[in-house]
Design a binder for these strands. Sequence first.
DNA 1: TCATTAAATGAAG
DNA 2: CTTCATTTAATGA
Length: 204
Amino acid sequence: MKTISCMNIDPEILYKFGAENKSYNQDEIIYREGDHAAFYYQIIKGKIKLNSYNEEGKEFIHNIIGEKQSFGDSLLFIEKFYVMNAICLTATEMIRLPKNNFLELLQNNPQISLEMNACLSQRLYFKAIMLQNMSSQNPAVRLEGLLNYLKSYHDGDCEQCFPVELTRQQIANLTGLRVETVIRTLKKMEKEGKLKIKDRKILY
DNA sequence: TCATTAAATGAAG
DNA sequence: CTTCATTTAATGA
């Protein structure tokens, strides 16, 4: 199964339309909840997370985005404000293209525009899948839902050799579970043969 | 080696 | 399932 790289535009084209490189330090905030959406971002190197905090101050991670992927783009087509924060998990290098330039790029490149549609469509699809799984009371279902999502996003497929590059705490924040529950459930799933754990790394 | 951070466990609610 | 306390492992200065 080939997954759509979502969204990865040739940097040359981005530069042609006025994109610039921008680097961030670890933990640096790229944008905050409530900010006006003004840029298309594409990661060259590093990882970022999209999160928000609930009323009790507990973090919920909506997504973690890595190299050759874009973010902040789903709101570029409408006049809205971000509903989550974008924060660097590692030092990150990325390309940033102003909203209007991005729209212009799409107008001039129908094929990229189409890919953008496919990209947004795919995100919608997985959001739906995740929503179903995450609404389950069973922690194993939530974990499996997340793992399937991560695995499908990452290309390359072999049984139980997809390494999950997340800490258990991050997994907990992505599923709305507690770390201890994540740890215990993962071990249970390992016993059931649903995944493997090698040197604390999760292989799914 | 010391300090920090992640992972794992046990007990109780 | 969560919370709290404690222990063990891993990482880095």
